[in-house]
Nucleic acid binder design. Structure first.
Length: 354
DNA sequence: TCTGGGGTCCTAGGACCC
DNA sequence: TCTGGGGTCCTAGGACCC
């Protein structure tokens, strides 16, 4: 019997800050952009449950969050702190299963099929994991257990914070049926809206819809959605993940039309991206720049070299070439970014000088 | 009114090759 | 003048996730 577990830390960034800074415990805490007394740009990355009582949530604009609770503790994210905590946590989790798959800084799957006999034992196993995490790191997590990754993932979200939700195979249908389609991975606001026009709002309604209807409306993705509604999901728990791209983007403090500032920022981003590239000993073929105008219209433009390289000058030359048409746009720019992709790890063959 | 930054995956069209 | 089909690579945009 396959038993998959999904572990998700509760309000991870905020919890790490509270642990590091005990005097803010019990207060609403928002991690994200600097609110600058209500004039800040950007969004809240996460917040604790106390802040949620004020209606603050992640991805909310930081000025909105500030309006809802000006007295909250606003902190800028300290990624070094989060990633070192994450590394220690992952080490703990990985000691509980041979097959694990980390999906983000605070989330992972465990295949515990060979660790427990049944779902009751799986629940006890989850309790043991939580105890160790609480003792070693003073942090809470929520755990979902099910016959595949999809069910485990949805389950872990059901009893937050500090919860355990177990969904044995025979309960999968009842578990999923009443939930909104939005709970399924990959169904976001757009797909939710399109499904609503077919009168499909719950997972049960999605399951009862004919597969052919979904295939006609959404293509292969429709068939995949139908499978999810039936509770089918992948059980492959593997850590193998190849980096596909490395990028950096930055929002200007104020929208600008100043070409020098724009190119300067792109060069700075290029250097940061290049540093990451060399750290990983990668060679790239494609440079993509992204430009967001003040009206949020976002454009990307890419160019590729025939042979992979790790030369920073290639990045800068591509930037010069790609940014040029956008500098003549009437609108001010809000954000620019640089992304490298199409990687090889081997040194590209030397070009023959002839 | 305002909307960050790091990513992945998919689609669709065009160029080009055989 | 009209004309195929398969494959690969590149580019642009969109949807989604944490």
């Amino acid at each position: 019997m396959v038993i998959i577990m999904h572990i998700d830390m509760d309000c991870f960034f905020a919890a790490v800050e509270e642990k590091h800074n005990p005097e803010i415990k019990g207060k609403p805490v928002v991690i994200g952009a600097d609110p600058k007394n209500g004039a800040g740009r950007g969004v809240a990355a996460t917040c604790n449950y106390k802040a949620r009582e004020f209606g603050i949530h992640s991805a909310m604009s930081i000025t909105q969050a500030y309006k809802r609770c000006p007295t909250a503790v606003f902190l800028q994210p300290n990624f070094k702190r989060y990633s070192s905590t994450s590394q220690r946590l992952m080490k703990i989790f990985k000691s509980f299963a041979e097959k694990t798959q980390q999906v983000s800084i605070d989330e992972l799957y465990l295949d515990i099929s060979n660790k427990v006999q049944n779902y009751q034992e799986a629940k006890n196993y989850a309790n043991r994991i939580k105890k160790v995490v609480k003792k070693k790191e003073q942090l809470n997590c929520s755990i979902g257990i099910g016959p595949n990754k999809l069910i485990a993932k949805i389950a872990s979200d059901m009893n937050k914070p500090d919860g355990i939700t177990v969904v044995p195979p025979e309960e999968v249908h009842n578990f999923l049926s009443p939930l909104p389609v939005r709970k399924l991975i990959g169904i976001g606001p757009k797909t939710e809206q399109k499904l609503a026009t077919l009168n499909i709002r719950t997972i049960e309604q999605l399951r009862r819809c004919s597969k052919q209807t979904l295939l006609n409306r959404f293509g292969v993705w429709g068939g995949y959605m139908h499978n999810m509604a039936l509770g089918k999901g992948s059980t492959a728990v593997s850590n193998y993940l190849k980096r596909k791209s490395i990028g950096k983007q930055r929002t200007f403090d104020e929208d600008t039309k100043n070409s020098e500032d724009i190119v300067q920022l792109l060069y700075t981003l290029a250097e940061m991206v290049h540093a990451k590239l060399t750290e990983r000993k990668f060679y790239f073929k494609t440079v993509t720049i992204v430009v967001r105008f003040a009206d949020f219209d976002t454009r990307t433009s890419a160019s590729s070299t025939h042979i992979a390289t790790n030369n920073i000058n290639v990045i800068k030359e591509s930037i010069n070439k790609l940014i040029h048409p956008y500098l003549h746009d009437q609108r001010k720019m809000r954000l620019v970014g640089v992304r490298l992709s199409n990687f090889t790890q081997k040194q590209p063959e030397q070009m023959l000088l002839c």
